[in-house]
């Protein structure tokens, strides 16, 4: 019992620890995408593929999924939404953390470079905010969940004793 509640607590703590890191990876991905869009003018499918290849999992999986959908002739907007819907749940990030990426997805296929640049800048600023919020949540909750897991286990043992 102690082991399972401790595991549960540590699992929750791990999610709090991973979230800021994954948001940072997502921001890095968007910066890489910007490089390929603004300077390389590389077609979206190749640009997203390159981003996916240079990032760690699970964030890379979002981009791999986008490539998969684009190659199946989905529009960019559909591909981004599908990827977030299907891979998002396996990350520590929440729906709001993916919103900046989805905002890019909704315009990337139909916008010129200057418009896209503004959208990417705005997405990065929003992600910065999300990352700060995730770090604060980690600071508040990571230890709490670790202790809570152990203490809940101990409490249950005492009650049952």
């Amino acid at each position: 019992m102690l082991i399972s509640t401790t595991g549960l607590g540590f699992g929750m703590a791990r999610m709090y620890r991973a979230r800021p890191q994954q948001i940072a990876h997502l921001a890095q991905a968007i910066r890489l995408l910007r490089q390929d869009i603004e300077f390389g003018q590389i077609p979206l499918i190749s640009a997203v593929q390159r981003v996916g290849d240079s990032l760690p999992s699970p964030v890379s999986q979002v981009f791999t999924e986008i490539v998969d959908r684009l190659s199946k002739r989905c529009t960019a907007e559909e591909a981004f939404h599908h990827a977030v819907r299907h891979v998002g749940e396996s990350t520590a990030m929440n729906a709001a953390d993916f919103e900046p990426l989805l905002a890019i997805g909704s315009v990337v296929g139909t916008s010129d470079r200057s418009h896209l640049s503004m959208e990417i800048d705005s997405a990065l600023i929003r992600l910065q905010g999300r990352e700060a919020e995730a770090i604060e949540a980690q600071r508040k909750n990571e230890r709490l969940w670790q202790y809570l897991g152990i203490l809940t286990g101990l409490l249950l043992i005492l009650v049952m004793w």
């Binding site: 869009i37 603004e38 003018q41 590389i42 077609p43 979206l44 499918i45 640009a47 684009l70 002739r73 529009t75 960019a76 591909a79 990337v108 296929g109 139909t110 916008s111 010129d112 470079r113 896209l116």
Partner: peptide, 18 residues
């Protein structure tokens, strides 16, 4: 029409600006 446009530009209007 939007889908045809995206197929023509490979969903990358930014890459065909030139």
């Amino acid at each position: 029409f939007a889908r045809i446009l995206q197929a023509v530009t490979q969903s990358s209007l930014y890459a065909v600006e030139e």
